[in-house]
């Protein structure tokens, strides 16, 4: 089976700083891959490369077998693909950000229906119907006409998830979707993500919620200083005796709920 996402030899430099140092990763379709690792290890950078919000310096990314951004010629050189090709491959990817990034001038419904209208060229009523269905999925059908500023953080993040899902992506990327939320609001967002995972969505989740990673993740990837130190099922990765770096990381991040799970 073709992996939903396949990353080979990914290197990302910002000037002199080498932030990703040769990442190889396969993301199986229909599964949840959780990226964990210390702050500054390159998790966001890797996710942003998968979304082509950041262009990798070296290496290749395939989305459903299609090259993302660059094609590698047989002699090993990279050429940038035409923007139409890039857009087509990217349209399979949905992204959820730590700070929601909702469009402040549009209501919840507007945020979800906007791209259906401008990008997908659907008529107003069809776009609104589809958007409403997505809002219902995240439990916000009765908040449709409120602006982001009138919603709680958890509700904003659920709108952001609905906005991404409305475009029917094959892969959903989440960059610390709950870490800017008050603790009592993380649950509602994690529940939406759980339901999405149960529906068979391919997901890549950067999270410090180790409990969520251990219980929902099918694959855990542990990133440290720009390298993938460990990759496997939660059982394999979290089983004792653990890799020393992982142990050290878990000591700092492990919340009590997760401690019970492991």
């Amino acid at each position: 089976m073709i992996a939903a996402v396949s990353v080979t030899g990914l290197v990302k430099r910002f000037g002199q700083a080498e932030v990703l140092r040769g990442i190889d990763l396969e993301v199986p379709a229909g599964r949840v891959t959780c990226l964990i690792g210390p702050s500054g290890s390159g998790k966001s950078t890797l996710l942003r490369c998968l979304a082509f919000l950041e262009e990798a310096t070296e290496g290749a990314i395939l989305i459903g077998g299609e090259p993302l951004g660059f094609a590698v010629t047989p002699d090993g050189r990279r050429t940038r693909l035409p923007s139409g090709r890039i857009r087509a491959v990217r349209s399979q990817i949905g992204m959820v950000f730590q700070h929601f990034n909702l469009w402040p001038h549009m209501t919840a419904l507007g945020n979800v229906s906007e791209a259906l209208k401008t990008v997908r060229r659907l008529g107003r009523s069809e776009a609104d119907d589809r958007a409403m269905a997505q809002l219902r999925k995240v439990g916000l059908q009765n908040r449709a006409n409120l602006y982001p500023s009138q919603l709680s953080g958890g509700q904003q993040q659920r709108v952001a998830i609905a906005r991404a899902l409305a475009l029917e992506p094959k892969i959903m990327l989440f960059d610390e979707p709950t870490s800017s939320l008050d603790p009592e609001l993380t649950g509602e967002v994690l529940n939406v993500m759980r339901a999405l995972a149960a529906d068979g969505m391919t997901m890549v989740v950067v999270s410090h919620e180790i409990g969520f990673a251990a219980s929902v993740g099918h694959q855990i990837a542990f990133l440290d200083h720009g390298q993938l130190l460990l990759r496997g099922t939660p059982q394999e990765v979290f089983r004792k005796p653990r890799h020393a770096r992982l142990d050290q990381f878990l000591d700092t991040y492990l919340d009590r709920g997760a401690a019970m799970l492991l």
């Binding site: 979304a51 919000l53 857009r87 990217r90 349209s91 990817i93 949905g94 992204m95 950000f97 700070h99 990034n101 909702l102 469009w103 402040p104 001038h105 906007e114 791209a115 401008t118 990008v119 952001a160 906005r163 991404a164 475009l167």
Partner: peptide, 29 residues
Amino acid sequence: PRGVVEAADMAGFRPFQLFWRIRVPIAFK
């Protein structure tokens, strides 16, 4: 905000759509 632009980029907006639908209303306000 950069993130608001990135969200539109992810949603497949072309540059002129992003300009008129996202950047202009926010800058105008």
